[in-house]
Amino acid sequence: MKNIWWKAVCIILLMYTVTMGFLGDVPAMAILNESIRNLYFHVTMWFAMMILLMVNLYNSIKYLGDPVLRTDEIAEESSRMAMVLGILGLLTGMVWAKYTWGAWWVNDVQLNGAAGTMLVYAAYFILRNSIEDEQKRGRIAAVYSIFAFAMMIVFIIILPRMGDSLHPGKGGNPGFSSYDLDHRLRLVFYPAVIGWTLLGVWIMNIRLRIRTINKSLES
């Protein structure tokens, strides 16, 4: 295995997440009860997704400046992994919503924002598939991805702060900060975010290497 150290970090952090995520002390809260532990498994999915989308954004901008095919490949694979994490985040969110808010899908800005983000990146893949030429595909997809990312930021960061939201910290709800500041939660939450992100990067890395292999097989 190449670059063994960050994969080791990933394994350690994930094992830490699944053990301490269940055993660690959490603040006792009404309605949420033990389900606050979903912070380590559900919320981290969105964080990891956002980090991977930023990887996509970075590589898209980089590709426009210097069109190297590898950069475009990284951009595509990072957004693909982000989609996987996003779908997991949506599904886990639905389960959690059912037991805290009483419905599988609630009309919530944050939730709709997440669903909208998935739609944007689904469109991104359709756009990619409709272009044959590799150089052209990279350029046009990069333009769309930068544009889409900017809109998505408005969607999931600015809009939820304007309307009512069931999510903490928005629309008059008590912020996560009141217990997010709780060091007991932070102690597991941040390592969990890094762990899940590294797992995504790992899978992405394997897919990229398979692509390279495929390409050298074709040539």
Binding site: N112, G116, L119, V120, A123, I126, I140, Y144, F155, M162
Partner: peptide
Amino acid sequence: AIASRASNSPSLMAILSFPILIPLLMT
């Protein structure tokens, strides 16, 4: 402009624009 570069199909235009329009439309 993006859709016209990709392929001149009007359906692609709709697919690409709907998700991007959501924030604007909601506001």
